[in-house]
């Protein structure tokens, strides 16, 4: 019981701290690719958020301001739970430590982007005080749409086309292990109870133990699935090149346009926690190292969690925004690759 409570406190804390670093690392990697110095590591992820908490609280332009403001907080909690479900301490709450539960939570996140967008009415598009309708265009639109609503439509499409790769990839380990429980998945890769509470805190034994893991990632179906997971990860996060939902060139920032002050800080925190949670789930499922109360192991886990953001920031520095014209085929292609991984893993099991 005490472990459960401790884990519930410490692991989200570790997630937060890593989360603070992630945007900074991302920006820094991109900046180096762009041959400039770039912001300090903590500026985009930590100081910016803190600054927003110190700004004046204003009433957003939204039909439901309170609900609008509470959505990022929901997102943060949902993502913390997603991380917690993968920790050994929570496995005792049996039904929750499964892949299906995490998939359910990720669906909530996808929905949240839609909800955020539909409650926002930014000044930047329709409500800009500028007389443009009096000119007497031949064409008439029945309805004037805000940027946010446009991006909600896109989010809706992304839920249907963009999430296949991620979920397919998540089920490849399940097929290999023949269980949806995280406990079985990590045990399959060599993680056992001796990892959890060994004697001393600092011990080179850990390193050997980590090296002794047999990650699914290094098998052929695992490698395929890992690759597909990576692409699905970018799609779920709406990062370049799949950032059509918040494409800077037309909807500016997409759903989050109207967040100001602390709510904007909350929104950024939410993004950070999604970034962390997804990479954490990846490390757990494909490397076999769940976040545990064991501090050195937790540290290694958090460091491994930085790899995915670094990789995707390299990808995003070299890619333009895709429109749906490109997203459909790309998504289909990776879905097919996911299916291939699935079939290969089925063959491997049989």
């Amino acid at each position: 019981m005490i472990e459960l409570i401790l884990a519930t406190i410490i692991i989200p804390l570790a997630a937060l701290i890593t989360g603070f670093l992630i945007p900074g690392v991302e920006r820094k990697v991109q900046a180096r690719i762009q041959q400039r110095i770039g912001p300090p590591l903590l500026t985009p992820g930590f100081w910016a958020i803190l600054k927003f908490f110190y700004k004046e609280k204003i009433k957003p332009n939204s039909p439901m301001p309170r609900l609008f403001h509470s959505l990022p907080i929901i997102g943060i909690f949902v993502m913390f739970f997603a991380v917690l479900f993968t920790t050994p301490e929570w496995w005792s709450l049996n039904a929750l430590g499964t892949v299906v539960a995490v998939v359910g939570l990720l669906k909530v996140i996808e929905f949240l982007f839609m909800a955020i967008g539909s409650f926002s009415r930014s000044i930047l598009s329709v409500s800009m005080p500028y007389a443009d309708q009096i000119k007497g265009a031949v064409m008439k639109g029945d309805y004037r749409r805000f940027f946010e609503q446009q991006s909600v439509l896109r989010a809706f499409k992304m839920i249907t086309v963009g999430s296949f790769p991620l979920y397919l990839a998540m089920f490849v380990p399940v097929v290999l292990v023949k269980s949806i429980n995280f406990s079985d998945i990590v045990q399959f890769q060599g993680f056992d109870a001796s990892f959890i509470y060994p004697g001393g805190l600092i011990d080179l034994m850990y390193l050997e133990k980590i090296l002794s893991l047999k990650p699914i990632l290094f098998t052929f179906p695992g490698m395929l699935a890992g690759f597909v997971f990576f692409v699905g990860y970018i799609m779920l996060l709406n990062e370049y090149p799949f950032s059509i939902e918040k494409a800077k060139s037309d909807v500016i920032e997409g759903p989050s346009l109207e967040y100001a002050a602390w709510a904007r800080g909350g929104y950024y925190l939410m993004r950070e926690s999604i970034l962390f949670a997804l990479s954490s789930v990846f490390i757990t499922m494909f490397i076999g190292l769940p976040p545990t109360l064991n501090l050195p192991l937790l540290l290694v886990h958090c460091l491994l969690c930085l790899i995915m953001p670094i990789l995707f920031s390299i990808v995003s520095a070299f890619s333009p925004i895709f429109t749906f014209k490109q997203i459909y085929p790309v998504s289909m292609g990776f879905t097919a690759l996911g299916f291939l991984a699935m079939i290969v893993s089925l063959l491997a099991v049989m």
Partner: peptide, 30 residues
């Protein structure tokens, strides 16, 4: 045509325009 479902007004302040002008895009879906 002379009728569209939706109008997306873009502008005056927009990263893709840089300078202010107002564009009204009449879109059907995307």
């Amino acid at each position: 045509k002379d009728k569209a479902e939706v109008e997306v007004p873009v502008g005056l302040l927009h990263p893709a325009m840089l300078e202010p002008y107002r564009a009204r895009f009449f879109v059907e879906d995307e």
